[in-house]
Design a protein around this nucleic acid. Structure first.
Lengths: 252, 252
DNA sequence: CGACTATTTGATAGGACTCAACCTCCGTGG
DNA sequence: CCACGGAGGTTGAGTCCTATCAAATAGTCG
């Protein structure tokens, strides 16, 4: 159930069996949600942590005139807000991008768990730090990178993040995001996303069909995007340096 | 000395006299730094908190080819990293924009203080949350707003942040940032910043001369930028709702 | 098979960039 | 005290990347 969370946390700290068990047995309310629905609304009060178990979601903000900026993607194992400890209200919203399974985790249960296991608290803070790092890197993308570079960077980021929770099969992963949503993510129009994507296919960088994305040439993508996975802080504590190796088995 | 820090923290929590005193007497190493120098470097190990006492600084990231994105401005009272508690290495750099006075605060001293005064810890976390909110709002700017909107938004943000630490005199404040730096901040070329600034002067929105910026029409700026100060989380705890009132005395 | 929703394509427009020159302000030093 | 040099600001011209608008095509789902 909360396996992706554990897989993710283990990128940051080494968890003891007891800790994993209590995460697995945590008192959560699991719920299925359709695609394109708000999970957490702006200004909403926070009564607990929301955990994404399956599917994709995104943080976003709307401008009064309807323009939307997506602030980050959430993948299984991500918490909507690891800072329930002190935040009172959301200053942005969260919506599903695909059909998803979420768990609502009452504040009390979280606080209980984290007071028993400081290592879990530590791991949660790490998650928050990584999220921040991602946001900063997106700022670099929107501020400095061209359309091609932005798309390439995003693909690299998702590839690494999804691989860290074992959601990459061969070189491909589910990618239930429309081109319009990519536009709102990268600060581009949907039309231009489409054309850039076509360039990338033509250059044999990626294949994208039926909500599934295949990375055909990771090295080229990394070069184009000037992608440095350091900001994801993967393999921080656990030692298995998945991130550093370039060459990958290419079966699909 | 650390007055701006206290003024800032008091936006978030009510501090007791003893807490203020120990902040004032904190064991810090104060140092003057010239403009345009790195305070904290990327990948650098963190041995303590660095506090900005006077002047402006910025967080930034460089791309291998030299492009630079500024990730946020730091003003007096801001901490370079309120998360010394767990972060080991920086994933971005910090440099001064003007001549500045900084205080280096040894990790041990910070940890000592925060273990005695949980309210101070809480305030530090708030600062981190606000920083994140600012970064997210910048993402919205770079992704969705036009040049004019971005500049207007930035001016509004600085106006509110500086006012919260009493650094706005009348409607004007020190603004030691070059147009090239504004470009790196807003994802625009220096030339285009220049032209947009001229438009803003022509429209009597701001005046900018000799490193000093005067806000001539805050309401118009807010409208143009679609600025909603909510993300700054000012007046969160302390009650004095400085943020909500639109109309301001206009003396200079 | 409709009725959407998403993707693709074409044509045109515009915001922002680049390059290059010129101007202005200052601090330094002769 | 004025000349020089450099940094920052301003202008002009031309270009390019990306947006817009519109319409056609392809997918998806009941």
């Amino acid at each position: 159930m909360s396996f992706p969370l554990i897989r993710k946390l283990e990128n940051y700290v080494q968890l003891a069996e007891a800790e994993k068990r209590s995460l697995l047995q945590a008192d959560m309310l699991v719920r299925d949600v359709d695609a394109r629905l708000d999970i957490v609304r702006e200004h909403q009060e926070i009564e607990g942590a929301t955990l994404l178990l399956e599917g994709f979601a995104c943080r976003y903000k709307l401008l009064p005139d309807g323009r939307r900026q997506i602030l980050g993607y959430m993948i299984p194992g991500d918490m909507c807000d690891p800072r329930i400890f002190l935040l009172d209200r959301m200053d942005h919203a969260i919506a599903t991008l695909s059909r998803a399974k979420i768990a609502v985790w009452p504040r009390k249960a979280v606080l209980g768990l984290t007071s028993i296991y400081p290592r879990i608290t530590r791991a949660f803070w790490w998650c928050a730090l990584v999220d921040e790092g991602i946001t900063r890197e997106w700022l670099v993308s929107l501020g400095q990178r061209t359309a091609l570079e932005r798309l390439s960077h995003l693909v690299c980021e998702l590839y690494f993040r999804l691989r860290a929770i074992d959601l990459v099969r061969g070189n491909s992963f589910d990618f239930p995001v429309t081109q319009a949503e990519l536009g709102d993510t990268l600060g581009l129009s949907a039309v231009h996303v489409n054309r850039t994507l076509q360039d990338m296919r033509r250059e044999r960088l990626v294949r994208l069909m039926g909500r599934r994305l295949t990375v055909l040439n990771l090295d080229a993508l990394r070069t184009i995007a000037m992608f440095d996975p350091n900001y994801l802080h993967l393999n921080a504590k656990s030692g298995h340096s998945r991130v550093s190796s370039e060459r990958e088995k290419k079966a699909e």
